[in-house]
Design a protein around this nucleic acid. Structure first.
Lengths: 212, 212, 212, 212
DNA sequence: CATGAATGAGCGTTCATTCAT
DNA sequence: GATGAATGAACGCTCATTCAT
């Protein structure tokens, strides 16, 4: 029968509806300031119904965070499918990171919340493992790109894995710094300028460097 | 009589006792999740007494944050007093940042979270301005070091201010990434290794790069 | 099914139960001295439940006040519907005021206190306007009665509006004075005696007076 | 020795200083909104010291209220010393009441607080008795004036004591009504106009009335 | 499945009063 | 007498979660 299927579909639709409301509210007001009441209201569902779909406010939040993480993973994954020479690929990855930061501003932002950590632990084990695997795959690919660059003589003989983390850390750090208004004011420059500057600086470093 | 002095001492001791409890709790659970009740209990003082020493939870938190910020500023300030060639000075700054991260782990950790900023705004205007000024002075010195390196022919003709932010962002980003247990597990390397790796990579990049 | 109806009824019953507790407490101790905790306890409901029915302590109080005010307005309104000659109508109004004072002793009492006004301002604007309108209509009718008395040659040519306020003020003042136990003891007479005495004195004054 | 006297004087001075601060604050913000802290601060005395002079916040408040009552009593007392014919004397009393309302606005206002009653009971028995006696004396004189008016044929043969209370109640009632902003707006006239209007209306009534 | 009324613990903050000094 | 640090109970209000229907 299609009955069960329909029910399953409806259940998922409802779940997504809740997440949609929650997303907007969490993004706009943060975890603490958002109440289950508001989420229920915006979803036009009863407060009790929320607990039919999500075990707790924390789990709901964590699920949303995970969603954002998935998007980032997928975008990076997609980038790796492109056929680009290593140096351009590196630039592409940086760009993807920055684009994600622009397109999903709130997800990026939310990763910087302390609450993120406390709450991320609430994710079902399988999701956590899944994220870890995806992350590792990306990291692996990242390293391979650099390795390929070395083999092709484009990059110096660096440690590909270290370089990958350093690169990722650098872009992350820039975006993080520019989250703070006081910092932005202090630096007097915009993120875009700086993120590409940092990416290029880094790629140059890899190109010219000798030894690991 | 020493009576008054003693009282003053005791008052300061009590204040420090409150800050100590608060520090531990804020570090462990963040601002929102820590209650004045808990702080009072841990200090073995009545909740009301807390308000004799700090006007509000926010002010208490802000006072603690500011303390940590001051230490970092002072350390960087001190580093700039050393007489080192630009490239070594850059390495020193990175090292200071990392040392601070090690010695005041929890402060670093707290600065990484968004909650920090929301509360930091509650600091008295003069403190905010003071912090901003200190930050700017550090940033200025930082840029000057790079500028000097360029003039001495050690560094390529980069934009000193952009390079300074990129450098600071990179170290920050590494430390931030390694805060996450999953990331640590994924990367399979330790922070120290990587932070120095990144610093050196960066300095090399500045040395070899042509154009700005 | 009657399920929904029953629920609605129960809801209203609960609301009334809260108001009943609140009324007693507010009457006995005033607004400030009454706590939501007490009201909840007396209603055998959790404190939180109170807020399901009333948005705030102020709104709860205001709702009760408004209820009492409405009764008074309605009674006066009803009196004006009677077909009585002006002098008897005046006496009727005084009597209504006094009867209300007897029947809704606590409401009268509460209106005498300043606290009332501070909280009355918290009423929704529409209610305030509504009350003001009702008050004005009553005042208008009141004046018209006196005006008619003048036209019929029963009353002297006084200013009807001033006379109306003076009359209302006089009855109010008597009731207010007799609220105080010390005053009652001092005067050695009862309210009823005096209120009618004052009313009659007043009507006589209007009858015999020449000029306005 | 004058030592003891001096001490006594100082004690009284201190007491008065506390009352002065308290008066201003109670008048400006009401009983509840005024804290002992503020009173102590304004008096430049420690909070503890306040309790050396007044047993509680309530007693302090009551003492101030009593002071205001005394002023009113004294003014009326003084009026009775004047050598005026009964009708003019009555007008004088009304005027004194109104003048007091103008000059000691806050005292008048404060008598209308619910808190007044709750707190008045806290006065030392002797003060309460004293007030009662003064009140009775005034009431007695008041009645005598009317009695004299009757004997002189100026007033009709009313019950002097009832008339006195009615008169006092009427002026009180007017002042009370005009305390309320909404009422003032509704009536569209000012107190002064109306208070004299009511006084005169009343005196006329006494003059022309026949019987008691 | 879904509702929404109800709970109950918790929040930051205030403040009259006490008491060791 | 005088201080002022400390108390402790209270305040109005919120909200994640539960559960009878």
């Amino acid at each position: 029968m299609g009955t069960e299927e329909r029910k399953e579909r409806e259940k998922l639709a409802r779940q997504e509806a809740i997440m949609a409301s929650a997303r907007e509210l969490f993004f706009a007001k943060g975890f603490t300031a958002t109440s289950m009441d508001e989420i229920a209201q915006r979803t036009e569902l009863s407060k009790g119904a929320l607990y039919l779909y999500f075990a707790s406010k924390e789990v709901l939040y964590a699920t949303i965070l995970n969603e954002g993480l998935k998007i980032l993973f997928d975008r990076i994954e997609a980038a790796f499918q492109l056929d680009l020479p290593p140096d351009q690929m590196l630039r592409k990855i940086g760009e993807v990171h920055y684009r994600y930061y622009l397109d999903y501003r709130e997800y990026s932002r939310i990763f910087f919340f302390r609450e993120h950590r406390d709450v991320a632990r609430q994710l079902p084990r399988e999701l956590i493992r899944d994220n870890l695997e995806k992350g590792m795959r990306n990291f692996q690919r990242f390293s391979e790109v650099i390795q390929k660059g070395i083999e092709q003589g484009i990059f110096a003989r660096v440690d590909p894995r270290k370089a990958a983390v350093a690169f990722w850390g650098a872009t992350n750090g820039i975006l993080f710094l520019f989250e703070d208004e006081l910092n932005r004011e202090m630096f007097g420059m915009d993120v875009e300028q700086l993120i590409y500057y940092t990416i290029d600086l880094f790629i140059e470093a890899l190109k010219k460097r000798q030894g690991g």
